[in-house]
Design a protein around this nucleic acid. Structure first.
Lengths: 203, 203
DNA sequence: CCTATCATGTAATCCGTTACATGATTAT
DNA sequence: ATAATCATGTAACGGATTACATGATAGG
């Protein structure tokens, strides 16, 4: 029982995947992530190659090299690793959500640009978020289709579903936000101080 | 013109603040940020002490030391800095939003814990997000109160408003998400838990 | 067969985080 | 006065991003 207290989210991501899906190569991890959390929380592949060795050093996983051509490295979680996951799950995380939206950052400074800047940014962001929302919803449709087709949705798919659902809800919120911006941008939104701006409809 | 292309969001944050509010100390930046974006995009104060010197090195800002007791460092944006901001505003950011939610990460792995794990996590997260939402809404109420009181809302406050509004919308989505989880947690949502860990049926 | 994409890995750099520290103000 | 909090800064470490690189597999 090392004081497994300074593990990063990345650590738990990898540990969790190893715990649930069994031994895996970094590439396998990468694929799992890409299909789920990766949609809104980026874990570049280099991270997933770098993290497992760290876990090995901490005794939370073990490594096996292939010797033939591909020299794949396969990682397996240890008992200590499993324990760490359990302990983590019992300790609710109070760290608050990071919402890093570059588009919003630009909007925040849009008044520094020209009068059209807010409109341009808004249009762009609206397009981006609408596209992403659509991709989530398509995926959800597919999901439901498959489930309707008989297979009684493995638990795993459920958890995939959760993260995608969260992504969907966020994108909906984002679309709503930018739509509201777009609606208010026609008037003097960038011109600001006349005060006559419509009250934001949100309470 | 330097290829001012590898600046980080942090760089533009600082540049933008210096451009809009004029020369500032790192602490001044910190305060601005804390009142706005800082609510959902953390910029630890050390960052705001570290970034300006970087900008100086790139010729985007200049520095002035105080010589008396406090030895404050005040930073001023340069013409090149202003140009960089303008160029950035003209180049819509396609980088997608990072939504890093530790609670969601836990939920994603909740099936690895006990049967109660999902419920516990959900309850906790629901409380957290409700509290945060409330704090946003209180702030919004105050905001409107002040504005109603006559002062014709400076433009600055408007942009503050934007970021808080986004925060509010996100928290709403989060609350909705966790409420849905809570509603479904009573049934067997967590109970794929027939004990034996199924082979993941997903490719 | 060739080319594109998949799969696999490493290295360097730098940003970000954490921790440490201490001088000023304000409150009790 | 003393404690608490505000204000100000630095240093070190490590995780994360980017770039580089190349071996397999499949499609044309």
């Amino acid at each position: 029982m090392l004081s497994t207290h300074q593990l990063s989210p990345t650590s738990y991501l990898v540990l969790g995947l190893l715990a649930r899906d069994g031994p895996s190569t970094p590439y396998g991890l990468k694929r799992q992530v890409a299909a789920t959390l990766g949609h809104f929380w980026s874990f570049p592949h280099a991270l997933l190659y770098a993290e497992p060795p760290r876990l090995v050093k901490l005794g939370l996983a073990t490594e096996a090299h292939e010797l033939d051509g591909r020299r794949r490295r396969t990682f397996t979680i240890t008992q200590a690793g499993d324990d760490a996951v359990q302990e983590w799950l019992r300790r609710p995380s109070h760290d608050s959500t990071e919402l890093r939206d570059p588009g919003l950052l630009q909007l925040y400074f849009a008044d520094l640009g020209s009068t059209e800047t807010p409109r341009i940014i808004t249009r762009e962001q609206l397009a981006i978020h609408r596209a992403k929302l659509k991709s989530y919803e398509d995926r959800a449709r597919l999901h439901r289709r498959v489930r309707g087709a008989g297979e009684p949705a493995g638990q795993l798919e459920e958890w995939h579903g959760h993260s995608l659902r969260m992504g969907t809800l966020y994108e909906r919120a984002a679309v709503a936000f930018w739509e509201e911006m777009a609606a208010n941008a026609g008037d003097g939104a960038a011109a600001g101080s006349d005060g006559r701006r419509k009250e934001p409809s949100i309470a």
